[in-house]
Write a protein that binds this DNA or RNA. Structure first.
Ligand SMILES: NC(=O)c1ccc[n+]([C@@H]2O[C@H](COP(=O)([O-])OP(=O)(O)OC[C@H]3O[C@@H](n4cnc5c(N)ncnc54)[C@H](O)[C@@H]3O)[C@@H](O)[C@H]2O)c1
Ligand SMILES: NC(=O)c1ccc[n+]([C@@H]2O[C@H](COP(=O)([O-])OP(=O)(O)OC[C@H]3O[C@@H](n4cnc5c(N)ncnc54)[C@H](O)[C@@H]3O)[C@@H](O)[C@H]2O)c1
Lengths: 214, 214
DNA sequence: GAACTTTAGAGAATATTTTCACAAAAAAAG
DNA sequence: CTTTTTTTGTGAAAATATTCTCTAAAGTTC
């Protein structure tokens, strides 16, 4: 059940969202890897290979039962579990994330938001009240939280990360564009918005160069 | 100059940020691939390979001149160019992105923000006034904009994307979690925040399973 | 200035991920 | 009931990306 490529997991989420839309519209009872792939911009072979890491979900000559496949993906991706999450940094990005309703359907629940700025502590963000950093450890331990989001300025991220790990956090999603130095047993995933955008400008330049040389 | 791995570009941005910090602190005149790599969580070989796609920047037995390498990366990544960008959707994420000062140093300039909600049009976001969707085409053509960010709800994204492409947009950074159907010559990069988080919960589950089976 | 140390660059070897190709199962057509 | 069509699942092949290994250049030590 391991040895699953990283990109496969991300694509499963994409398949899931499309299937959910189909179920909601009661559009189709069954879908082929070709149609599913085409709908989400992935090859049919890739769809089948991605699913094959987890078992057999389709029927030869027919395709996949939409509703069942959706349920299987929920199971695989852990959407029926509850993942309590704490978020540090009640700034622009932090507030956007807390206000976003799309995480809940995936079992992702931001249960607390922390900040060190006295002007922000006590404010309401989404359904939460911004708490002081001083409560980080207590909340994490009380609720047995393993996953945290870091949305503080670059220079604060390392310190916040260490505090989180000390409190028991096992995985961090870091939006601050800085590499964290943490024990190997802590999972860290970097969400680097600027570098994604730069990839796009880079490819745009490449295309221009190629066009010019033709 | 092509055939550069996608991940290499993203890492170059990471190297760049670290070098910028060194230059600002006047910390080091020279850095080895080992030190640079170690600082940003990448192997030394990876650092050297990444740079080798673009030329020779180091000195054997010595390392890389920090300031020169930073300048070379600026050149490679197009940070000294001006990339005007339009953003559609003055919601939570859209406003966060416009307010973020970190894009400017990479030549990324959000020059206009659009929304269709009358309550939002006319509001100030960062240094910009939210404009009506009706002005999208005019602004893009007037300013020769090629790059757009989509930050509207899922169901609106396809329509907005088509409007942008018709106005001349060549590359889209889509934050709405939905696959866009656009002509092949339009570059699309998806920023899927939820799927990143799910990858993390998935890996966390895996680790738990592995720990339990030991 | 000879021997040693450090470190970039590059090609080879590995590892990872995607695509291909086809057998086998299910359904549909004849 | 046989043939044809559809479509999955999978092992092999291809493509992509990373790591290893070694050479040679630059600097340092003695
Ligand atoms: N806003 C964006 O679009 C964007 C894009 C890319 C990256 N980022 C990164 O995301 C992070 C947050 O960005 P933002 O725009 O939300 O910034 P922001 O300044 O709006 O918010 C940062 C928040 O963190 C709080 N904070 C500072 N130090 C803290 C600490 N030690 N403990 C707890 N809270 C602390 C501040 O009080 C503030 O509320 C930054 O690292 C930024 O580089 C943001
Ligand atoms: N906020 C998050 O943390 C988050 C996380 C993941 C994904 N997303 C995605 O990002 C997108 C935006 O999220 P958000 O939280 O900012 O939502 P939001 O509701 O706060 O903002 C959406 C904005 O788009 C505007 N809009 C709607 N239709 C439009 C149209 N046709 N043309 C122009 N403007 C239009 C709305 O008026 C609103 O201002 C959504 O697709 C969401 O799924 C957001």
């Amino acid at each position: 059940m391991d040895g699953v490529p990283q990109p496969t997991i991300e694509r499963l989420v994409i398949y899931y969202r499309y299937l959910k839309k189909l179920v909601a519209h009661d559009d189709d009872k069954v879908i082929s890897s070709l149609d599913l792939g085409h709908s989400v911009g992935v090859s049919a072979a890739q769809v089948r290979k991605d699913l094959s890491y987890f078992g057999e979900f389709g029927c030869k000559g027919v395709g996949y039962n939409v509703s069942n496949l959706k349920k299987s993906l929920e199971q695989i991706l852990g959407f029926n579990q509850n993942w309590p999450i704490v978020l540090v940094g009640a700034g622009n990005i932090g507030r956007a994330l807390v206000n976003y309703p799309g995480f809940k359907v995936m079992g992702l629940n931001i249960i607390a938001i922390f900040d060190c700025d006295l002007d922000k502590i006590g404010n309401r963000v989404g359904g939460l009240i911004v708490k002081s950093n001083k409560e980080i450890e207590r909340v994490i331990k009380d609720k047995g939280v393993e996953l945290a989001i870091i949305a503080v300025p670059v220079d604060e991220a390392q310190g916040v990360a260490e505090k989180l790990v000390k409190a028991g956090i096992k995985a961090i999603w870091n939006i601050a564009p800085v590499t964290l130095k943490l024990p190997d047993n802590v999972l860290v995933y970097y969400e680097d918005l600027a570098s994604s955008l730069v990839t796009l400008t880079y490819r745009l330049s490449q295309k221009r160069l190629k066009a010019r040389s033709n």
